[in-house]
Amino acid sequence: MDSQTALQTAEKLLEPYGMEMIRQDDLRLDVLLSPDQLHEAVKALHDARWGYLSAIAGVDHPAPCEDAVASGGIDQEKKGQVEVLYVFCQGAAVLTLRVKVPYTRAELPTVCDVIPSATLYERELMEMFGVEIRGTPVKDRLLLPDEWPEGVYPLRKTTMIGTACSSSKDEV
């Protein structure tokens, strides 16, 4: 299957779930999903044996600075979002499932029941971005130190390097 056919197949497979599909370039297809549809979409790809899960990447979208300042930081909590990219690859074709969750309800269903190898990626996402993964088999710390404070997510833009470390030292 060449890359174009692969991406067309993916488009057909994901048509029932995707809110929007964007062809980034010749070899890349992005599919925007709502959190509820994520599991179904991943299952559809897996059942059709389309490619393999290459990575799960989190991207932080904090609320714009001016809004945050005006509301004294409250909007920062309300409006900030974490975008999660599930990247599937088949040959040279790259398919990205994009899901956005707000800070206030940062929850996604696990995909480990379909793709067991996702467990390490999901654990990383939980620790680094504070996205709660419902039903993931192991929730133990994978990367951060045992004494790392709860509720500090290092890869969120609002977490400044140094501040999280100093507070964790205080606790120890």
Binding site: V138, D140, L142, P145, P154, L155
Partner: peptide, 18 residues
């Protein structure tokens, strides 16, 4: 068997943003 990583996690991804 189970695995625990992160003993040499150096925060490089965060570091690149700066």
């Amino acid at each position: 068997a189970s695995v625990r990583l992160g003993y040499v996690h150096r925060g490089i991804e965060k570091g690149t943003e700066d």
